[in-house]
Design a binder for these strands. Structure first.
Length: 416
RNA sequence: GGUGGUGUACCCAAGUGGCCAAAGGGGGUAGACUGUAAAUCUACUGACGGACGUCUUCGAAGGUUCGAAUCCUUCCGCCACCA
């Protein structure tokens, strides 16, 4: 099957009610993907040291492309990150220093490598700062500025939105579109990259690139965008204030990562299986049919597969075992966060709230006390009643003490 | 450059001298109910302290006042119109 149909089938590409694909600049791209091997790209912003699950759609798309025999290019917006994309944002983005960007890029490559094979240039990562930085303003205006129509740019949805809102739009941000268009032009010239993809907030930028390519190179570029994935409850995926679900294991442990998927909304399970695993579609459909509590089996598989992709099979197995041990009531030796304490300390008794805080079960001691008051904290699965409850050696069970915050977060204390 | 407006906690948004750690909503967390789901109901949601106490917070720095998010001064950011 060609890459286009794969993406379509797995739910990456939005469709009309009758099933015809939306957000594709030209359906010819389907035939092209069928008949030959091409290079395609997606841009990532190096705004943090880690990507989070919000970028996973883009990553998976590149991975599917590679599997179908195409060559993915991950473009890191090292140059454009210094400008800021107005698309979809109500605020101006903070600008980053070159050092920040450098550091972030390294993180991104590491993470992308888990999904995409970069060896032998089967995929490449490029930084648009390489060609954007040397640009000379006058030359750029003369050579490319002539090709951009302000009228057309103003009509772009992303720009229109900002103009309507009271935030307005600075000239700096307005230029983002030109730079991104230039990226595409650069890649089609130097890497034969004829396809750009991205989130659907990138539609206008992608079209601008295609336009520019037609005018300058007399070639045809193609674009496909993907709808923003929201959870069934309407929230943007993986972007909770406190816990953006990062791909980096240091920022979000494999265990938490596993649990994130395990706790997916019923209504999202089928969609997620298609988007975020490589399971064959008949398997996905089969799992998607499950109803009622049987759907937990599908979530189990989703969590495992998703974790495997990001953290590797070993980590996924460990996470799954740990979680299932805990839920089956067997908490001994589970691989959960732990803290060592001196036995003398424990003999005197340690404030439970203190331990909850130290084990990151709560962000502060106050929060821990609140949790206890709410009845959400327990020691060895017994609810703590008093906010100044002390934990002592009497709570030791086979050398450890199990702490639990809420239903799902566990940690343990062990004696040195 | 001129005029007017605006800057509040994770986000949106009230608040124009004390009753403001700051209404309301969203989000988040917890409890009940369940299927580690959803929906619903309830509670919590600055930090620290044995909960009535202290400290830090309302763009920044100063000032007036017994007392300021609220008044004054300067500065910074953003917005709109004019030029």
């Amino acid at each position: 099957m060609n890459a286009f149909d794969v993406l379509l089938e797995r739910g990456f590409i939005a469709t009309e009610d009758d099933g015809t694909p939306k957000q594709v600049t030209d359906m010819k791209i389907r035939d092209i993907l069928e008949k030959k091997s091409i290079a395609c790209y997606i841009g990532f912003d190096p705004t943090a040291t880690s990507l989070h699950v919000g970028s996973l759609v883009q990553i998976m798309v590149l991975a599917h492309m590679q599997r179908a025999g195409h060559r993915p290019i991950a473009l890191v917006g090292g140059g454009t990150a210094m400008v800021g994309d107005p698309s979809g944002k109500s605020e101006m983005r903070k600008m980053l220093t070159a050092e920040d960007i450098e550091q972030n890029m390294a993180g991104l490559k590491k993470q992308l490598s888990r999904f995409i094979e970069f060896s032998d240039d089967k995929a490449i990562m490029v930084n648009n700062a390489d060609w954007l930085s040397p640009i000379n303003y006058i030359e750029f205006l003369r050579d490319y500025g002539v090709h951009f129509s302000i009228n057309r740019m103003l009509a772009a949805e992303s720009v229109k939105l900002r103009l309507e809102k009271e935030q307005g739009l600075s000239f700096l941000e307005f230029n983002y579109m030109l730079l991104q268009a230039f990226d595409f032009l650069h890649l089609i010239k130097n890497n034969d990259c004829i396809l750009q993809m991205g989130g659907d907030d990138q539609w206008g930028n992608i079209c601008a690139g295609i336009d520019l390519i037609r005018r300058v190179e007399r070639k045809t570029g193609y674009g496909i965008t993907f709808p923003l994935i929201t959870t069934a409850s309407g929230a943007k995926m993986g972007k909770t204030e406190k816990g953006a679900v990062w791909l980096d294991g240091d920022l979000c442990s494999p265990l938490d990562y596993y649990q994130f998927w395990r706790n997916a909304d019923d209504r999202d399970v089928k969609k997620f299986l298609g988007l975020f695993t490589f399971l064959p579609m008949d398997k996905v459909n089969e799992l998607g049919e499950l109803q009622g509590k049987d759907i937990n089996e599908a979530k189990r598989i989703l969590a495992f597969e998703a974790t495997k992709l990001n953290h590797g099979e070993e980590a996924a197995k460990t996470a799954q075992e740990t979680v299932e041990k805990i839920w089956s009531g067997d908490k001994k030796g589970a691989d959960i966060p732990s803290l060592e304490v001196e036995s003398s300390e424990l003999e005197e008794g340690i404030l439970a709230a203190e331990l909850f805080f130290k084990l990151n079960l709560t962000p502060s001691k106050s929060e821990a006390k609140r949790l206890i008051k709410k009845g959400g904290a327990s020691v060895n699965d017994e609810r703590i009643q008093a906010f100044d409850f002390k934990i002592t050696t009497s709570h030791l069970q086979e050398g450890e003490i199990l702490l639990r915050a809420g239903k799902k977060k566990y940690a343990k204390v062990v004696v040195k």
